[in-house]
Each structure stands twice: as C-alpha cells, then as structure tokens.
C-alpha cells in the first residue's frame, strides 16, 4: 500500500519540544525517516543541527538509541556499530548514519567512501541544508554558487556545489536516492525501501533552512517544492543501477517543463547579491543535469516510451 497522510502511522519517535528552529525541514524529514524505519534503528550522528535536535544530556527528544560521534566519522562509527551488533548476535536493527552536508560532502566523505567501498551494511542519510548551519552558516561543499554565507559574506560563494548523490552512485552501491522534506511521502517510501536492502544505501535529503537561507519559516515547504519545480532538486532513485525519476520530478518529466531557476532564487535572502552571470551559470548547471536525468529515465526499463 502506498503511504498517504491518512494511512501513515501515528507513532512518533521524535518528541515535541525539541531544539530545532521553527519551520526546520530537518525536523520534518527526521520525523518521517524514523517513522519509515519503525524505530528499529541505531542512529549515529556527527556534530550538526541533528545533534542539537537530539538534545542536551541528560535529556533527548528522540526515542531511538543514538551515538554522538566525532565530525569526520559517521560512516566509520556505523561500521563499528555493525561489528558490535554482530559480536552480540543482535539482529533486526538497521544501523543508520545521519549527517549534514558539512559532515557528508566535506569532512565525512573519506569515511563514507571507505565504508561504501567495504560494502558496509548500513543506511547513510545526508540531510542537506547547504551549509554548516549549526555553527552559524559557514559555506560547505554543498552551498550554491552565489549564496551569501558566514564565510562568503559579501560576494557569495564562487563555486558550484558538488553532486554528492552522483559521487555515491559511482561507488556502485545497491541503492542511491534523492529526497526532499517537502515531499515527506516520497521520502518515507524511499527510506522504507532502503531499510529493507542489504549493503550500503545512500539517501540525499534536501532540507530547507529558514534562518540560514533567509526566508520566512512558514515558507519551508514552498521553498522545497520550488526547488523541485525549477530542477534545483531532482527526485530520483537508482536501485541496482536502474534509474527512476519519482514523485513531482517524474510528473514534470511527463507533462511539462521546469520553471526558471530565478523563481526559486528570488524567494531567499541568501541570493540577494547574486549576479546575472551567476544565475545564468546556475541555470546552465540545472539544465545540463536535468537533461542527463531525462536521458537516463528514457533509457530505463521503467520508461513508458
């Protein structure tokens, strides 16, 4: 049965009164990630807004066991947790590393790449708020070209972000997907599917951040949807090498065109000093990736053509 708002479980693993900002997409995404895994998990989390969400000793706002691990080591600690579970003969638990973009694209990449190469049996979820938000919005390898951040305060970042899902796919792992907190049911389905697969699984979750990106916190869902409608985010999954567009990206591919990227950019204060040239460069980047995805979707066995 496909998940919808009416049949989705009422059970919550994320408790009320946690420390995330109002309108935080990470909080929304994490709520549904834990629902999809039915709480049968051990989570490992490097320093990030998710550590803040988990709470300050001796209280936590999450009802599943969680290890706080140093910044570079989410995937390494997952490997250790798996070894521990094996030694104890414990079965039926999924080890899940959940890290931010700083902890994934940048500082945790070596450990993640190594764990994937070892075919470690775990699920890695990167929630991407496109910056080091917990420490005050420094730029990361995922911050977009032209975005103002704590470390690119005047001109904005001068480089395009790296495509982490493509990097992880190049490891030949059994499951890679992109998701977005504004499409919680698509996220739920992907996490549920990934939970049942063995081997290294990777999900990249787009996670709008109201204070970091400078937009009103009631706009979180709208910003996330605009990201998909303009092609900034493409929702897809790659299961055993087979590519498939999902959810809104699948519908856009079938019946329409992407909106101009500008419509997404103008809604956010972080792009207030972006230049026309940078907008054009970003639009070209979006168009090229969208074309690659359309070509792959056409060649895929799921294709309707």
């Amino acid at each position: 049965m496909k998940a919808n708002a009416v049949n989705l479980t009422e059970k919550e693993y994320l408790l009320q009164g946690n420390r995330t900002c109002p309108g935080c997409a990470l909080s929304l995404a994490y709520r549904h990630i834990l629902k999809a895994l039915e709480g049968q998990v051990i989570v490992t989390v490097p320093p990030s807004c998710l550590t803040v969400l988990h709470g300050m000793y001796p209280i936590t706002s999450v009802t599943v066991p969680c290890v706080n691990t140093p910044f570079a080591s989410a995937a390494a600690s997952a490997t250790g947790l798996l070894a521990g579970l094996k030694a104890l003969g414990r079965e039926g638990l999924t080890v899940v590393a959940v890290a931010g973009d700083g902890g994934t694209h940048d500082i945790g990449l070596q450990a993640l790449s190594a764990a994937a190469e070892r075919q470690t049996d775990f699920l890695y979820i990167c929630y991407d708020n496109e910056g080091y938000m917990n420490t005050g919005n420094q730029r990361s390898g995922s911050t977009p070209l032209g975005a103002i951040s704590g470390t690119t305060p005047i001109l904005g970042k001068q480089q395009i972000p790296k495509d982490i899902a493509a990097i992880m796919e190049a490891h030949g792992i059994p499951y890679v997907a992109t998701a977005n907190a504004s499409y919680p049911l698509d996220l739920y389905e992907k996490v549920k599917k990934a939970g049942a697969i063995r081997g290294t699984r990777f999900i990249h979750v787009f996670s709008p951040c109201p204070p970091g990106w400078s937009f009103p916190f009631n706009n979180t869902i709208i910003i996330g949807k605009l990201a998909v409608e303009t092609g900034w985010v493409i929702l897809y999954e790659v299961e055993d090498g087979v590519f498939r567009l999902t959810s809104a990206s699948e519908s856009i591919a079938k019946k329409g065109d992407l909106k101009p990227l500008r419509e997404y950019l103008v809604e956010q204060g972080r792009f207030k000093s972006i230049t026309e040239q940078q907008i054009e460069a970003l639009q070209r980047w979006v168009n090229a990736r969208w074309k690659r995805c359309l070509d792959r979707a056409d060649k895929s066995p799921h294709s309707v053509h």
Partner: peptide, 18 residues
C-alpha cells in the same frame, strides 16, 4: 557512559518561542 533519557520538552516549553 553518558546516556540520555527521552522526554518531551527537551528545549523547554517551545510554545513560548511563538
């Protein structure tokens, strides 16, 4: 080991932020 226990309102009564 430092082990936290789950509770509602870890950040206090967050309704006061409204």
């Amino acid at each position: 080991c430092g082990e936290s226990s789950p509770a509602i309102g870890e950040a206090g009564k967050t309704g006061e932020w409204r």
